[in-house]
Write a protein that binds this DNA or RNA. Structure first.
Lengths: 207, 207
DNA sequence: CTTTGTGAAATTATTCACAGCA
DNA sequence: TGCTGTGAATAATTTCACAAAG
């Protein structure tokens, strides 16, 4: 459920501000979600709150972290160290939220061996070995779209269970892994579409 | 409708391969969408196809471009020329798909005046004037999350109608503009969630 | 009086089934 | 036969309404 990640973010923000309780209505306020929606979503995972009082923020955060698999560190391999790859490497939130970029690969010989943000860029043909050795479970694909499918296969072959795909193509992985895509162009197009329709307001918190 | 952008992409791919007709089933094949879904989606905008034959790819492309507002060039202001901003500037698909980055702004004095990818980086306080002068209609926000809301307001103030937001916060714009967000962390978290649930398969083509 | 958790109702999205056309 | 367009059926999601609890 894509809203859960938003809830956790907001709950952690409030936690860091020293708040200790929150109601579903308060939680939804800054998130553009109704209180009922939040309660329904949470109820899927059991009972968290206390009627008349609300939710204990710390408990809720802990529980959400468990549900979302954020109670551990996810080792991640980044494939593609071009500008986008570099932006991803230096993207603060990843590191802070339990995602460790444990290795970086690229096909371009001129990049191999260089360091970006303190990380050495490795040859693509080391991928299999290193992913296995370090027990890397997730892959991030920031290669040109032509190379995306083969990169995905390589990652899956090496044992990766999930892929975050930045290439504007649909990856064919059958049921060998989970794939989540981030598609800049598609989003910009959606924006243009909405503007030409004259729609206003915020769409999607993720998404 | 977020699938429309996928349809256009696939239609253009086929067009560039010299195909002239396509059925809804063929179109959906590589997209993970059912044929019925495609027909339903398209039917919202009128009748395109020919029973028994399918869709004339060129007509369909033209029509989709109109619907999605891709029959013109969208001038865009990029705010935030850090690594992510630079990745966006050099992201091929944008330029190719009718989005022109007409100006780039940043708050960091050490970046002002430098050129990245042939584009001069400007002071933030020139934003208003330049957006008006050049009739820029869209804004891309790739600034740190603390600065995102104020950047959004500045862009809207200057007359921008739509914002593509890369900061992991919800922008409060009331009904003064359309906002579409791209949230890396949220997506990566979703991926981790799915992997910990053991779900497999591709999620979202855009999204 | 406030707020949760949850069935029931309403709404929205997707799929089915098929008439009609080439 | 192969295919579109669409009303009807089904499924999924969201909202409503309210009993129970602090």
């Amino acid at each position: 459920m894509k809203r859960l990640t938003l809830y956790l973010r907001e709950v952690e923000r409030r936690l860091s501000q020293g708040e200790s309780r929150v109601s579903s209505r308060q939680l939804g306020q800054g998130l553009g979600v109704t209180d009922t929606q939040i309660r329904k979503d949470l109820s899927w995972f059991g009972q968290f709150g206390q009627a008349g009082v609300g939710y204990a923020i710390e408990d809720l955060a802990t529980r959400l972290r468990q549900i979302l698999g954020k109670d551990r560190t996810w080792k991640t391999a980044l494939v593609g160290a071009g500008r986008l790859g570099q932006a991803i490497m230096s993207y603060g939130p990843f590191a802070r939220e339990g995602f460790e970029i444990a290795a970086v690969f690229d096909a371009d010989p001129s990049l191999i061996g260089t360091e970006v943000g303190g990380r050495r860029i490795r040859r693509l043909d080391e991928l299999d070995q290193i992913v296995r050795e370090r027990e890397i479970m997730l892959g991030i694909i920031s290669v040109p779209k032509e190379a995306a499918q083969s990169t995905a296969e390589r990652l899956i072959e090496a044992g990766v269970l999930g892929i975050l795909n930045f290439a504007p193509v649909r990856l064919e992985v059958a049921d060998r892994a989970s794939v989540v895509s981030v598609d800049f162009s598609a989003r910009l197009e959606q924006l243009a579409f909405q503007v030409s329709l004259g729609l206003k307001g915020s769409i999607d918190g993720d998404d």
